Computed example of a mutant assay.
Amino acid sequence: MRVFWVLGVVAMLAGCGGGGGAPVSKEPVPVGQVTAPNFSDADPHPWAGRKPANYPVHGIDISRFQTSIDWQTARANGVNFAFIKATEGGDLADPMFRDHWNGAGRAGVQRGAYHFWYHCRPAAEQARWFIKHVPKGGLPPVLDMEWTPFSPTCTIRKPGAEIRAEAAEFMNIIAAHYGQRPILYTTPDFYVENEMWRLSGMEFWLRAVTAHPGERYEGQHWTFWQYTGTGLIPGIQGEVDINVFAGGEGAWADWLATRQQ
């Protein structure tokens, strides 16, 4: 997600929003072409300094809660990539994964799958569950690790060293299968409390909805930044998470060339 923004787009991101900007087109977009974001936000943050508008390549992450997506419209209005929830723990599969995966692919949206970590199951079991449900091809797999205080079955908080060891085990299994090392998604509190920066060779996708990742994760290199959970995009019913890629269009093309499966 990330400058060829127009002033109107910047204004929409800063405004109150109510369903995204007016759809620009439903014409097919050539594969690889970056489309500019035509978004708004139901609960916008007053960004100052380094802001999402500084990055031209935007995309989304979705799950079963996004039940209706016109992928062609979303693609034309700035959705260049999508990370789609596939699995959770060792026995839950997202019922919308296949529909979202196929829809994104048909529209030329760069697509990847993510696994939501369950702190009460072994790493190897969770990795096997993900592999069972996610085909090869697409963006690198993602491991989503965060605290789960509202889980009805697992609110345990293991020591940071144990969590990092489990993350490494999961990633090694996934990398061996897909030929690409996964990306780690996490939140500010989880990152700090478990010292996730100690994981070597890690590529990060970071959540930061009130400040730039450089302020929330000081000194940490990142590839993707989730900057809102209340985005409004033409073609997508309801609110959605929006993300940006760390570089410009050229860097995006270079990253895809080396990090796609």
Rank of each mutant, 00 (worst) to 15 (best):
F65Y: 09
Y191G: 06
G105I: 10
A53D: 03
A93N: 04
A14L: 14
R164S: 11
G78N: 01
A257W: 04
W147V: 13
L7F: 12
I236S: 01
V6Y: 10
P37T: 08
F204T: 03
G247H: 04
D94P: 02
D91N: 10
A53E: 12
W101D: 04
G59S: 04
W197Y: 07
G59A: 08
P122G: 03
W71K: 00
F170H: 06
P182T: 03
G90S: 08
I236K: 04
G78H: 00
A22I: 15
T148I: 11
A251F: 01
Y178T: 00
R259D: 05
W71D: 13
D61E: 05
T155S: 14
H221T: 06
Q237D: 14
I242E: 14
K85D: 01
A124W: 10
Y191R: 04
G137T: 07
H58C: 09
P135A: 04
A86K: 02
I156G: 14
E88N: 01
Q237W: 13
G229E: 07
R207E: 00
C120P: 07
G59Y: 06
G89F: 09
I236H: 03
W5N: 14
G160D: 07
G219Q: 00
A124Y: 11
E125R: 04
M96D: 07
K136N: 13
W205K: 08
I183P: 01
D254G: 01
V31M: 14
G59W: 01
W222C: 00
W197K: 06
K85E: 00
G89A: 08
I242R: 14
V29R: 05
P44Q: 02
V29K: 05
M96C: 11
